[in-house]
Amino acid sequence: MSDPVTPATPTLAVRCSGITKHYGVGEAQVLALRGIDLDVRAGELLMLVGPSGCGKTTLISVIAGILDQDEGSCMLFGRDIKQFSQEERVSYRGKNIGFVFQSFNLIPTLTAAENVAIPLLINGMKMDAALVEARERLREVSLEGREESLPTQLSGGQQQRVAIARALVHKPKLVVCDEPTSALDGETGRKVMEVLKQLAVGSDRALVIVTHDSRIYDFADRIAHMEDGRIVSVDESH
C-alpha cells in the first residue's frame, strides 16, 4: 500500500550516476561522457538531444548495456548490469532491451515477419511461434499484408515501422532509439513517433530516444540536453 499522504515515487527505469567514458589513449584520448547523472522514469519517453559528438550515442550504448562505462553506475530497473557476468548481461539485454536504429538495420534477405521474429528466436522461441507473434506486432504497426515483403520492397517509413515492431516484439522494459526519424520525411517521422510512443511506453516501461530532429520534440515527456559529454539541462515542460 502506498502512503496516502506522500505522492508515490515513480519507478526508475534507468538511474545513471557519475558515468564517465573515454575513447582512445594518450594524447588521442577523447572523454565522451564526463560524469553523467540521469534518471529515466518508467512510463516516460525521454529524449536525449544535443550537438553531434556530445556523447548522446555513447550514453544510450551504456544505458542499453552494449558498452561499459569507465566509472559510475548505471542501474536498469534497480539492477547494475555492469556487475553481471558477460553471459548474464547478454541474456538480460536479450529479454529487456529493444533497439531502433537510424538506418533500420533490417536483414535484407529476410522478410518483414522474419526480421521482427529475430529477438524471439534469440530468446529461444521456435520459428513458427515467433512468426505468429511477429505478424501480430506488424499488424499493430499497421503493416498487415506486408509480412512477407523484403525490406527493399518497403518504403523508409514502413521499414522503420518493421524495426519498431522488432524492437517491441519481445516486450522489452526499455527501448532505446538512435535517430529513429532522421532518415524519414516530416510526416512519416511523426507517424513513426506516434506508433513508437503508443506501443513502447507503458507504466512499467520506458523509451529513450537520441535525436537531432526538433520536429519530434513534442512527443517527449522530458528532454535532456547534452553538451560536451555532460547533461546541461533537463526540460520537464513537455
Binding site: I66, V90, S91, Y92, G94, N105, I122
Partner: peptide, 16 residues
C-alpha cells in the same frame, strides 16, 4: 557484420 552486431546487441550469445 553489421547484422551480426545487431544480433549481439539484441542478446545473441557468442555460442549462438
Amino acid at each position: 557484420l553489421r547484422y551480426f552486431a545487431v544480433f549481439k546487441a539484441m542478446g545473441a550469445t557468442d555460442r549462438m
